[in-house]
Design a protein around this nucleic acid. Structure first.
Lengths: 129, 129
DNA sequence: TTACCTGCAAAGTCTTTGCACTCTT
DNA sequence: AAGAGTGCAAAGACTTTGCAGGTAA
């Protein structure tokens, strides 16, 4: 159950941190494969999921496209560019009070919430005119 | 380009409205197949996407599991039960002002946002004790 | 008639899993 | 040793797409 120290696991974690900007599993695979060409995608996925469970990284399920992985583990919101697909952090406080409201109104035990903004990033907006 | 009136398209729309509670494509397929057994999943998917583009229904991409389709087309938020996977509407006003904040702070053209709460629904919470 | 729509099957995308082998501990 | 981790390939879940024929307008 406990994480065993492996080269692959270390490289995956380093890659998530190095790529910073919410990389996909495939991007992480490509990054790691640069120095460790024999690694398999399955190992990358397994390590990403494992690290996410341990809280070392955070998995971001995007509405469209593959999941992304964040080196920041505090709760925060994201915005995804509908043109290039990249995901960015949003500068906004986490609104815990929303969860209280829902818990009181509906009979739910709330474990969290996520907000994903959609829009066009400055770069893609500029390139189109 | 314009929607042509077909039996399949009509049935799909009716099924989304009849099922109400955020059905998956597969649930809609099953529902329609009851009266029209020869329909194919591809046709269901095509009609769902088409109807969503036309604004007749709304597609809800869930963080985990298949997309769901909502007969309500106004903007609102959702909560997904992490046990049974069902999606429910949240009784909370749409917060347009959030988008303004982001637009001003980051250089994004915002087209929308979605909030998905996670939790355990009353039913699943009760059944576990 | 036209070109959109359908059903079928195949393919596509993203992720997980079974298996035998290899490592860390 | 023991069993978690690995690589490979296959499968899995969900969705889209190519094609030939059907059908609404």
């Amino acid at each position: 159950m406990l994480q065993r120290q492996t080269i692959q696991g270390t490289l995956v974690l380093e890659a998530v941190r190095a790529l910073r900007c919410h990389a996909t599993a495939d991007e992480i695979y490509t990054e790691v494969a640069k120095t460790h060409p024999n690694i398999s995608r399955a190992t990358v996925y397994r390590n990403l999921n494992h690290l996410a469970e341990l809280g070392e990284i955070r998995k971001i399920e995007t509405p469209a496209g593959p999941d992304r992985f964040d080196h920041l583990t505090d709760r925060h919101y994201h915005i995804q560019c509908t043109v290039c697909g990249r995901v960015f952090d949003v500068d906004m406080d986490y609104m815990e009070e929303l969860e209280r409201k829902i818990r009181d109104r509906h009979g739910f035990q709330i474990t969290g919430h996520r907000i994903m903004f959609q829009g066009v990033c400055p770069q893609c907006g500029a390139s189109k005119g």
